[in-house]
Write a protein that binds this DNA or RNA. Structure first.
Length: 590
RNA sequence: GCGUUCGUAGCUCAGCUGGAUAGAGCGACGGACUUCGAAUCCGUAGGUCGCAGGUUCGAUUCCUGUCGGACGCACCA
């Protein structure tokens, strides 16, 4: 399939340059990025639109005249070999609009009906992209904020992969520090040597329980904080008893967290552990000091001065020579690039760490790593609830597992209410998939940078702009195809033909399908899953109104019926591909 | 105080590198199930795009200021 948009951008550029040359107009250093293409607001105006204002200004002429003049040149001088040869160009006021050759586009689209791997739009081909996300602490289970992080990272990775990139998903488990010592200490006091099985708890929830109990310990033992610090010191000294408990607690926490990953459908190509990486970076900082990039304070601490780029002074190594958070991140980044030379590294981390990443990227740049300019912080906002902010201390944190359970129960109720338990087969499994579809779509639909309000009620309404709506349209498409497979309707008596699909109703659906590649490219380039989410809803909605008005199996015309079956197949495959990218489970039945 | 970021319909959110009448969903109101599953579809009402300037042929989009919210400004992570 040719990329229509880029083809026409190139063509328009050539024509404008030729036009300028003929008229001997100076100052024309137009290049491809100067050519803006858009989709006209009304399909009747065309499929692709080029505003002529800026070029008209360059040529000092009326934009409408320029549009007319260029459109005439297109009519006169097109290459007969091009697949776009039958596209039409029309000047509409100051706009030059292109009408696609419908049969050509339709035939390209229908090929999708027969394949699930039809996407040949690979704008990121050859790029190696590393995506870091999740990065949980091992002292408590995942919460709603992690779910946003996880789905953003996983979805973005899938989008980049679909766009042709080689993607490596990595996680950095935060398995050391005083927060873990707190749950260890509380466990020592209250745990009585219990295992998660003894208490009937999921293992990460078990660890989390003791982290919460540390607050109780503090009221009973004023020295609790100091004891936690002392325990950290013992851990760093390699005390065997402390290490043994630490290992046990981490094992419980991590295996529980991994179970949640599996449930959510996210995964990693490589796990890094902070306990193994936190020492990395110190040598790099000392090296930087030697080169004079950093400086040493009289008390022995090592600093970088970033005031010339509008940042601050920042400590990179404590006076006692121990590492900080940023020291570790410096080391980890270098280690990762050595490990797997990426063209881009994306950190999916909450927006509260924006400053940290600015500093980190600047420090790496100063250390002389040219790849530092390829680092990107995908910053996302907090997830709030209608009831207010999530706060650990006030116990208003929404646990990830509990939330998925709750959503699943509600989805199950919905299925029962519709009386569809028997038809969907395994209602429990379908309910959880609907729950995940609802949750993931809700989390991905808005732009990441903003804080968002998660309204469980609304996400569960199952009507409107939601994940289940998209799943439902996929299921409806499958339902039609299933019936066709069972021999229903008279499509088998007909022959698929492009001419049969020339009506406006069919074309608007074909047109929507044709927008897939452009949206994928945009989504990948902007590193923004919400672009794909918007497209998923658009396509589902278009399909919904289309099949209502355009009978597929029930069409009296067998040829039209056969053609529409192929169209439904293309919709199904496109929806499935898009759902996969958005971590929305695709359902044949629901 | 300094910095980053956000402010679009009653509510929750879209709006690609500035471009043709600012879009969805929920909620409200009114329609459509002897016809491929109504978790649906169609229609109506609802916005001086926080406010004020500026750049431009053209600004929700860029710049400045201002008001309001969020976040950051640790030898914590």
């Amino acid at each position: 399939m040719i990329d229509r948009k880029n083809y026409w951008k190139q063509r328009i550029l050539e024509l404008l340059l030729a036009f300028g040359a003929e008229k001997e107009i100076k100052g024309q250093n137009l290049s491809l990025p100067d050519i803006v293409a858009e989709v006209p607001p009304d399909p009747a105006m065309g499929d692709l639109g080029f505003p002529m204002f800026s070029y008209a200004k360059l040529f000092r002429m009326n934009p409408a005249l320029l549009a007319a003049s260029i459109s005439q040149r297109i009519a006169a001088g097109k290459e007969p070999d091009s697949p776009a040869a039958k596209d039409l160009a029309k000047a509409q006021g100051p706009y030059l609009n292109i009408f696609f050759d419908r049969e050509q586009i339709t035939s390209e689209i229908l090929e999708r009906g027969s394949s699930l791997s039809w996407n040949d739009s690979k704008p990121m081909a050859g790029k190696r992209v590393m995506v870091e996300f999740s990065c949980p602490n091992t002292n408590k289970p995942l919460h709603l904020g992690h779910l946003r992080n996880n789905v953003l990272g996983e979805s973005l990775s899938r989008i980049l992969k679909e766009a042709g990139a080689e993607v490596r998903k990595v996680n950095l488990i935060n398995d050391r520090g005083v927060h873990i010592c707190k749950s260890m200490l509380a466990y020592k006091v209250y745990g009585q040597g219990h295992s998660p099985q003894d208490e009937g708890l999921k293992s990460d929830h078990f660890v989390g329980k003791y982290y919460v109990l540390f607050n109780q310990l503090k009221t009973e033992d004023p020295a609790a904080e100091e004891k936690a610090q002392a325990m950290l010191k013992k851990w760093e000294e390699g005390d065997p008893e402390t290490l043994r408990l630490w290992k046990q607690m981490n094992e419980w926490a991590i295996s529980g967290i991994k179970a949640t990953y599996a449930r959510q459908g996210v995964g990693f190509d490589k796990y890094y552990f902070e306990s193994q990486t936190y020492m990395k970076g110190k040598a790099e900082v000392l090296e930087g000091l030697k080169k004079g990039i950093f400086y040493q304070d009289e008390d022995g601490s090592i600093w970088v001065n970033l005031e010339d780029v509008g940042l601050d002074r920042k400590v990179l190594l404590r006076k006692d020579g121990t590492s900080l958070y940023i020291t570790q991140d410096i080391g980890t980044a270098i280690y990762r690039h050595d490990d797997w030379a990426f063209d881009r590294l994306i950190y999916v981390v909450a927006s509260e760490q924006q400053y940290h990443f600015k500093v980190l990227f600047e420090v790496l740049k100063r250390l002389g790593f040219d790849w530092a300019s390829n680092l990107y912080h995908l910053s996302y906002g907090l997830v709030n609830l209608p009831s207010g902010r999530m706060k650990t201390r006030e116990g208003t944190v929404v646990d990830a597992d509990d939330l998925i359970d709750e959503l699943t129960d509600l989805a199950k109720e919905e299925i029962s209410q519709k009386g569809r338990d028997d038809e969907v087969g395994d209602a429990g499994s379908v309910s959880e998939k609907v729950a995940l579809g609802a949750l993931h779509y809700y989390l991905l639909q808005s732009v990441p940078t903003k804080d968002m309000l998660y309204d469980p009620q609304q996400s569960l309404s199952f009507t409107g702009d939601t994940g289940p709506y998209i799943q439902y349209m996929g299921a409806r498409a499958c339902s039609i195809l299933r019936k066709y497979g069972n021999g229903e309707g008279n499509a088998r008596n007909g022959k698929a033909s492009l001419a049969a699909l020339s009506g406006e109703g069919d074309w608007s659906l074909v047109r929507k399908l044709a927008l897939f590649s452009g949206n994928l490219e945009l989504s990948a380039r902007m590193m923004e899953p919400s672009v794909m989410a918007a497209y998923a809803h658009d396509l589902a909605a278009e399909f919904s109104s289309w099949y209502r008005d355009n009978p597929v199996l029930n069409s009296p015309d067998p040829d039209l019926s056969a053609s529409r079956v192929l169209l439904v197949g293309a919709v199904r495959n496109t929806l499935k591909t898009v759902c996969d990218m958005l971590c929305i489970p695709f359902l044949e039945l629901m």
